[in-house]
Amino acid sequence: MSTYSLSDGLASGAPRLSRAPLLATWIRESGVGVLASIAWIALGLSCLWWQDVGDWTRTHSLGIAAFVIAAIALFGTVGADYLGSAGKALHTRAPWLLALGAFLTVWEIATAKFAWLPLPFFPPPQAIIEVYTDDLPKLLDSVFASVKLQLGGYLIGATVGFLTGVSIGWSRAVGYWVHPVLRFIGPLPATAWLPIAFFTFPSSWSASTFLIALATGFPVTVLTWSGVTSVSNAYYDVARTLGAKPSFLVLKVAIPAALPHVFVGLFMGLGSSFAVLVVAEMIGVKAGLGWYLQWAQGWAAYANMYAALIVMSLLCSGAITLLFAIRDRLLVWQKGTVKW
């Protein structure tokens, strides 16, 4: 009896959801996507409507690109049901797409069209795009040089730091000799070594590698060390009663148990090595994004500086993402790790 009346109610209830609430749902679901589309249309219009106050070659292309993005946003929103995961991805990112479109529109109007912000210190978006299209080879060369220098120095620093940390955590004798040196040298900012490094090393490249390794090595050493010493004795007892030799205790007990600490060290080392990389490139090395920034400033090429900054930020963020991905892989056994 009760089930009968329930299904009856459902059947009669469905048509009663008339058009007005449907529209409200649609607006709630897709409104942001449509607004995002409108924001990008506004960017396109603002590019093409007024004359540029300066001489930029990519204004027209930027306008067209804005319209294309607006069209993608609109169709992606309207047809979200047919696009599967892509439609869902667009839906969750719609607020950001809206904010970005609005920001770029304001930026475009405030710089290229009415110059409310002083030129050339605040170049319009099309000027930065121009850098990416016209100065690409030089930019790519710089990216390559920076990545090469950073990767070499970081890997050396991380390896040496890890091995040092394990050694002083494990052996009292090593700790006796290394700990004071670590305390004396470690807290010194690696950049303080710049003047000495650049004339004691055979090349500015090797000097920079050394400095980056130094900046990476200190936090990695300290955290690996603290990780190894904080391993509970109970783990060693268990392993020893099961027949473990000292090498097993280091490789299969101490190091895996210390790994969460090691990754904190690797993360901190990555941050401080970025700083050293940029400073080293600005001062000594004649290549890389730091050098590109310096060079652009010399020519008052502010658009190039912003372009290089954006690339640099993507690279640094990418490096951290990569590190976190490796960590998540190795530390699946931990629960509740931070999602980068």
Binding site: A234, Y235, D237, R240
Partner: peptide
Amino acid sequence: PHPSRVVVFQDPTLFPWR
């Protein structure tokens, strides 16, 4: 210590990474 005499402790002390 020798594996012919094995201890089970009050805490299981399983290795969390394994």
